[in-house]
Amino acid sequence: MKRALLILLALAAMPAAAALKVFATVPEWGALAQEIGGDQVQVFTATTALQDAHRIDAKPSLIARARSADLLLATGAELETGWLPVVQREAGNSRIQSGQAGYFEAARYVAMLDIPARLDRADGDVHAGGNPHIQPDPRNFLKVGEALVQRMKELDPVNAAGYDSRWRAFAERWRANLLRWEKAAAPLKGVAVITQHKAWTYLFDWLGMREVGTLEPKPGVEPTVAHLAQVRQQAASSHPRMVIRAAYNSARPAEWLSAEAKLPIVVLPFTVGGTPEAKDLTSLFDDTVARLLVPLK
């Protein structure tokens, strides 16, 4: 039967309350909106640091939250392509559709890395816009935040002064933190590492580290026994100092390589909430740098 007519009653489409309602797809942008918005925003974060942002379902609870959102805060660059389009469509909320002021993509405001020379399914889960995991480089938060504060002021002009002053204070603290983290992480320059997923390109670009192998044979493809054996062989000549995985990754592939190649495992929070220490944006990078330095001691 073909649908001739479809009527959806969006009961939650009530007039916006005093606070700007922000729907963040991942914890890092939720945390950034909270830093800028303070008590003038109400932030809902759709996923946690222990979930794989590529593989989320358009759950009823997410659709319900998106219905009342004033601002949808996404990474973009196809990171959420597996679920966000369905949430946007089902939400029946015109404010957060792509192209509207209430739809913000962080990846538009940073210099993208790993942009593929060719797009082929045979290369795994590659994204045309480049590697979407932009948040491990703290410098990107200044670029994204600069654009985000403008957008929040545009959507909620009444509270513009508050957004501006909180952003200026955050950016100042952030610049000081950057100097502190870069100084602490100086010994990591040139260090070779193996990672589980190609999720750390921006981190390595920031700290000058070198990725000499990944446990996934192709981005988004689960590690196989044959590929792990190959990585094990390469490790003998490339001399990595550690194997890095994100908190949400399965522990087993990294544990196998760690035991075989006598490499320490470093579990990084990846985003806010990934480790008990990573409670907000500042402690996220405090913890990331601290954990990376452990194997060098």
């Binding site: 039967m1 001739a4 007519l5 479809l6 009527i7 959806l8 009823p60 319900a64």
Partner: peptide
């Protein structure tokens, strides 16, 4: 989440 709807065909 609550959704109510009607369809004709």
């Amino acid at each position: 989440f609550l959704e109510l709807g009607a369809e004709f065909g």
